[in-house]
């Protein structure tokens, strides 16, 4: 009888595992990330014990929207490196889009002197767990009692085409609110981006 029960339980567990649809939501605690950086070293969120959180941004080399935000991502890192460091992740299929393969990432990072880590999500698992769909796609993480919690999802600001015309700096405003111990007012935004190129 117990054996039957254990067997049924195992079947149920495996069915469950096969059908879990990942995609974090706001206020979810995220799992740690282990991905290779363009410098060849592995990066984990635990490498940043003093950070108050992270600006995780799914981006890539080829996409016009990612290109439009490249300078602004650099500026975010320059401003928040010690508090909310940028973790840039490229999950695109580097075979269909050779510009986005690991070599292409290394070239771009060195050419533009990226001050942030630029991680390669070759298996695309991290993008799937986050539910990222496009580039750029930002997840702002805040450390709360040792947990990495999602506080904002969406765009960097409200004007991809013209930085000088930006009215709402979504990511910076969310960081400012968190710094004051306040609730983030705009928790989610949508912007046009290039679809992540799935394998």
């Amino acid at each position: 009888m117990t054996r039957v029960a254990i067997f049924i339980m195992l079947v149920l567990v495996s069915i469950n595992a096969a059908f879990i649809i990942y995609a974090y939501k706001l206020e979810d605690e995220i799992k740690d990330i282990h991905l290779p950086n363009v410098d060849g070293k592995m990066v984990s969120l635990q490498d940043y014990p003093k950070a108050q959180g992270f600006i995780i941004v799914f981006t890539c080399n080829h996409c016009p929207y990612a290109k439009a935000y490249e300078e602004r991502i650099i500026q975010l890192q320059e401003k928040y490196a010690s508090t909310y460091p940028v973790i840039a992740i490229n999950s695109n299929d580097g075979v269909a889009y050779p510009e986005d393969n690991f070599e292409g990432m290394k070239k771009r990072a060195s050419h533009k002197k990226y001050p942030f880590v630029y991680l390669h999500d070759e298996s695309q698992e991290v993008a799937r767990i986050f539910g990222a769909t496009k580039t750029p796609h930002v997840y702002l993480i805040h450390k709360e009692q040792g947990k990495n919690v999602i506080k904002y999802v969406g765009a960097i600001d409200d004007n991809y085409a013209d930085e000088s015309a930006v009215k709402k700096h979504y990511v910076e405003e969310a960081i400012a609110a968190l710094g004051k111990g306040q609730e983030v007012t705009v928790k989610e935004t949508k912007a046009i981006g290039c679809s992540i190129k799935w394998k």
């Binding site: 496009k134 004007n159 991809y160 013209d162 949508k190 912007a191 981006g193 290039c194 679809s195």
Partner: peptide
């Protein structure tokens, strides 16, 4: 329209904003 957040949901709420769409 530069501020895409104002109209994407009006086209279709389930759209994440990724293109092609």
């Amino acid at each position: 329209e530069s501020d895409q957040n104002t109209w994407i949901n009006k086209v279709e709420p389930s759209w994440s904003g990724a293109i092609p769409a």
